[in-house]
Structure formats: structure tokens, C-alpha cells
């Protein structure tokens, strides 16, 4: 198994700690002029999302985590599992609710998602940054109100609820930024 020395540490590096895959968020090199060098790092557990700090003596090595990101097409949900397909190899994989998490409320069939694989299996699923979804329910707004002052909640076809301007109506398609969960604009298709 590949390993990394502390001098290779940088943000984005994927390492194994206590059996879990971690992403290095921040690495600080600490060294007194005439003394021992250390690496003080902040790492995010890729399974739980929790961030913790770690201290390493310079020259220590850690095991590399076999983690990489790939684009996969979301196929369908069978009630328990979300099914994805590699668009190049047509290989299919499944992920459960703990892995898909909040992403479930943004994706619909055939969307291309960013899937993080650990040892070849899905670890996390990120939706596209922008998705177009249909509004299935919202209060009728006042015609001619374009100010958007405050807006109103709208339920989308995937179950997500976002705030939309008052002029947006049920049945319309809207564009949403999944990173913030905010309405961007009306959409055609």
C-alpha cells in the first residue's frame, strides 16, 4: 500500500487514519529554528464528515487512502438503494442512504453526479452544482409581484423545499444551486 511522508502533506491529500479515509483540509509546518519539526493538520473524515486536528512528527508516514472522484449517472432508487452507472464502462454500483445523504433531495434519474469511491466502492455522492427541477407544490403568488421580497416555500419533484419568488408558480421548472440550496432562476428545460 502506498504511503505519504509528512513532507508530501497538502490540502486535498487522501490518507488513512484509524481505519477511516480522511481528506487533508489544512497542513501547517511547525519547526523551531534549532528543534524538532512537526506537521499540524486538520483532516476531514470522509465517512462521517467530521473534522479533527492531528499532530505528526516530521518524517512520519501515513498510509494513502485509495479515494478518488468520478462522474456517474444516477439511474434509479429501488426504495433502499440508489443505483449509479459509470457512463464509460456501464458498470453499475449502489449506495445506501447513509452515503447518498442530503444529495437525494437534489437528484433525479439520469443526472450526472460526482461519486467519491473508496477502494472502488461509493463513499459519498455529490449532486451537480446546478439542477433543474419541477415545482410540484407552492402557494399561488400575486400576479405582477417581481420584487421577490421574502418569497415563499416551494416543494420540488424530488421532495426538496426551496424559497422561490412570489411570481413563480406550481408546475414551473426552476434552476437551483445545490451548494446553497437557493433558487437561481426559472428554467425552460
Amino acid at each position: 500500500m502506498a504511503s505519504y511522508s509528512t513532507s508530501e502533506f497538502k490540502s486535498g491529500l487522501k490518507i488513512m487514519l484509524d481505519g477511516d479515509p480522511y481528506n487533508i483540509v489544512e497542513n501547517e509546518f511547525v519547526k523551531p529554528g534549532k528543534g524538532q519539526a512537526f506537521s499540524r493538520v486538520r483532516v476531514r473524515n470522509l465517512k462521517t464528515g467530521r473534522t479533527v486536528e492531528k499532530t505528526f512528527k516530521s518524517g512520519d508516514t501515513v498510509e494513502a487512502a485509495d479515494v478518488h472522484d468520478t462522474d456517474m449517472q444516477y439511474l434509479y432508487n429501488d426504495g433502499e438503494q440508489w443505483h449509479f452507472m459509470d457512463p464509460a464502462s456501464f458498470e453499475q454500483m449502489t449506495a445506501d442512504a447513509t452515503i447518498v445523504g442530503d444529495t437525494a433531495k437534489w437528484i433525479k434519474d439520469n443526472d450526472i453526479c460526482n461519486v467519491t469511491l473508496w477502494n472502488g466502492l461509493p463513499l459519498a455522492v455529490e449532486p451537480p452544482n446546478f439542477v433543474v427541477l419541477k415545482i410540484i407544490e407552492t402557494d399561488p403568488g400575486l400576479k405582477g409581484d417581481t420584487s421577490g421580497g421574502g418569497g415563499k416555500p416551494a416543494t420540488l419533484e424530488t421532495g426538496a423545499v426551496v424559497r422561490v419568488p412570489l411570481f413563480v408558480q406550481g408546475g414551473e421548472l426552476i434552476r437551483v444551486d445545490t451548494r446553497t440550496g437557493e433558487y437561481v432562476s426559472r428554467a425552460k428545460e
Binding site: 523551531p32 524538532q36 499540524r40 499532530t55 512528527k57
Partner: peptide
């Protein structure tokens, strides 16, 4: 879990 000698520990406390 760190493996340090005495001066290494003192360096760690001083810097951190």
C-alpha cells in the same frame, strides 16, 4: 501517540 525524545517534547510544548 507521538514518539519523541525529551527535547522533542519540549519543542512540541514550546511551539504549540
Amino acid at each position: 501517540s507521538l514518539d519523541l525524545d525529551r527535547d522533542g517534547w519540549l519543542d512540541l510544548l514550546l511551539t504549540q
